[in-house]
């Protein structure tokens, strides 16, 4: 029976996802095109889960997540283009994540004192500044961008980083430190009155979010092998925000579900890029008007939830 405890089930489920993925890749069912979609999906999951930590759980509205992603992407690309080995790739991912976290710290420390929409606009400004800097640096080759970044991303790496991100952020949220972050979303003044250092926890969440966004960027660089500053503009930040909002502000499983859902939709709409954005826009407005808490609200997909759902359905039918 011990095997059926919730903690174990999670690991078994993760192993299952990995094995199925590995089989699909090895048998060639997951062709190059589908694998590219899967990579995008995993990157979006990492981005959404990490933004959810900042915006959903800590309540700090950030519109600059693409900026952190771009730092990870460029740093990883620059490193792997020089050290083109697996250790070089891992070094690149780690350095990219750390660089994003460092920028997150430098930007977060002063701006996280701002509330709500002011913070949103400040983070947006920050992402624009990062983009303009990449546009003008010689080492990043300006507007033309970097081409020929070595490809290292395979399914095991993709799985490791995605599952790892979800696991670590989920652990963090279910710790005293994570709960401190959530109190800031609920009521900052009350949180401070019970001894929670608002600035410290906001910066912690922001830096962690930036770190994982840096990992997502590194994976992006190492799979799509081509980087341009325009890839990381305002609309990329919005893409991530749409996933978080659709899935539910404050629900990690919601972010994962929404990322999968939107991946399916964009696959269908891929030959009409404008329509994809129009769809995203309509989705945002409709969700906010009809279901502002998103698909999952702040609930998590768990076995308890499924059991409760089953119970209420039975009750309704009887």
């Amino acid at each position: 029976m011990a095997l059926l405890q919730k903690g174990w089930l999670k690991y078994i489920l993760m192993l299952l996802v990995f094995v199925v993925g590995q089989v699909l890749v090895m048998t060639g069912i997951l062709n190059d095109y589908l694998f590219a979609t899967l990579t995008t999906l995993c990157i979006n999951i990492i981005l959404a889960v990490s933004l959810n930590l900042i915006t959903g759980f800590t309540g700090q509205f950030s519109l600059g997540h693409a900026g952190f992603m771009s730092i990870g992407a460029y740093v990883c690309a620059l490193i792997t283009m020089r050290i083109s080995t697996i250790p070089g790739f891992l070094l690149g991912v780690f350095a990219g994540a750390c660089a994003a976290a460092l920028v997150g710290f430098i930007v977060g420390l002063p701006t996280l004192r701002l509330r709500g929409d002011y913070l949103a606009i400040a983070t947006l400004g920050m992402a624009e500044i990062i983009r303009i800097v990449f546009l003008n640096l010689e080492i990043t080759n300006g507007a033309a961008g970097l081409n020929g970044v070595p490809q290292f991303v395979t399914w095991p790496w993709l799985f490791l980083f995605t599952a790892g991100t979800i696991h670590l952020i989920s652990n963090f949220i279910h710790s005293a430190h994570g709960r401190a972050c959530i109190t800031l979303r609920e009521d900052e003044i009350a949180a401070e009155s019970i001894g929670i250092d608002a600035t410290r926890y906001k910066v912690t969440a922001f830096v962690m979010g930036a770190f994982f966004a840096g990992i997502a960027g590194s994976l992006y660089a190492s799979y799509f092998y081509f980087l341009r500053p325009t890839l990381f503009g305002f609309s990329r930040s919005i893409d991530i925000l749409v996933i978080v909002v659709l899935g539910g502000i404050g629900s990690l499983s919601g972010s994962v579900i929404a990322a999968i859902l939107l991946a399916l939709i964009s696959t269908y709409l891929q030959s009409f890029p404008e329509l994809r954005m129009v769809f995203y826009a309509v989705a945002l407005v409709v969700i906010m008007i009809l279901r502002p808490q998103g698909l999952m609200g702040s609930k998590e997909l768990s076995f308890d939830l499924l059991r409760n759902l089953g119970r209420s359905r039975k009750r309704r039918s009887s």
Binding site: D117, I238, V245, M277, V278, Y280, A281, V285, M288, I289
Partner: peptide, 11 residues
């Protein structure tokens, strides 16, 4: 409302 505004603008 802010998210809605972003949505309207993109739309």
């Amino acid at each position: 409302v802010l998210i809605t505004a972003i949505g309207v603008s993109m739309l």
